[in-house]
Computed example of a mutant assay.
Amino acid sequence: MLRNSRDSFGLVSILFHWVIGLIFLGQIALGYLMVRVSDFTLQFSLYQWHKSFGFLVLGLSALRLLWKLANPRPRDPEHMNSLERVAAHAAHVILYLSLFIVPLTGWAVASSSPLQIPTFMFNLVVIPQLPITISDAAEAFWAASHAWLAYLSAVVAAGHILAALHHHFWKRDTILMRMLSPSAAKTGRNVN
C-alpha cells in the first residue's frame, strides 16, 4: 500500500518519516561533534557533510509536504483523548516546521559568514549563498538561532519518540505500528 488509508500510513509516508527522522537526528549529533573537533581538515569535511545532509533534509521535507498535502494523514484512533490529540498535533507541527526552519537557518549561517566558504553538496554541486547581510554579527545570530532551534527540535523529537513507545508498550495500541508497516496496523487495539 503506497498511499495512506483511514487507519494507517502508506509506504511512501513511512519511508519519508523514517529517512528524514534518522537524518535529522544524525544531523544534531554531527552538528554537536563538528564544532568540537580541533583538526581543521576534519572539521571542514564534517561541516560540508552537515550542510549536505541539511540540504537533503530540506529537499526531502519539501517532497514530504507535497505528499502530505496530496495524501492526508490517517485519522487519530478513537481511543485517544483530547489532550493526546492536541499534544500529538502540536508536536507534529513543531517537527514539520523544524524540518524547514533548522536547515534554512543553517543555510543562513553559511551565507552570512564573512569567510564565504562555499557549500559543496555531497561534493557534486555548489549551493548558492542566500542574499542576506554578511557580517560577524549576522553569522553569530544565525548560528545561535540554528543551534537553539536544532536542540529544541531534538527535545520535541524525543517527546515524540517516547509518546510512540508509551502507546506501543503501555497502551498497547496501534499508534507506532501504523508507522512501521502499512499492513501492520489494523483498526482497534493490539491483542498482545
Rank of each mutant, 00 (worst) to 15 (best):
G31P: 00
R75V: 03
H160M: 10
L42S: 09
I101L: 12
L15F: 15
S111N: 03
K51Y: 03
D39R: 02
R6I: 09
S181L: 06
Q116L: 07
L162N: 07
A150W: 00
P72K: 07
K51F: 00
W107E: 01
L66N: 08
P118T: 14
H167D: 08
M34P: 00
N4P: 03
P131H: 09
H146T: 05
L176F: 05
L60A: 08
M34S: 08
I101Q: 00
L66Q: 09
A157F: 04
Y96W: 15
P118G: 10
A138Y: 05
D76Q: 15
I23N: 07
D76W: 13
A29K: 05
Q129L: 08
E84P: 06
D7P: 00
F9R: 03
H89N: 14
A90W: 04
H166D: 11
R172D: 05
S45A: 08
L22A: 11
D7C: 03
V19R: 07
A143S: 10
A140T: 08
R172I: 06
G59I: 01
Y151Q: 00
S13H: 00
L104F: 15
N81H: 09
M179L: 11
F169R: 12
F16R: 12
P77I: 12
L33N: 08
I101P: 03
E139S: 08
A163R: 04
K68Y: 13
S181M: 07
S111Y: 01
L130T: 05
L99S: 11
V125M: 15
I132P: 01
R64H: 14
F44K: 09
E139W: 04
V86M: 10
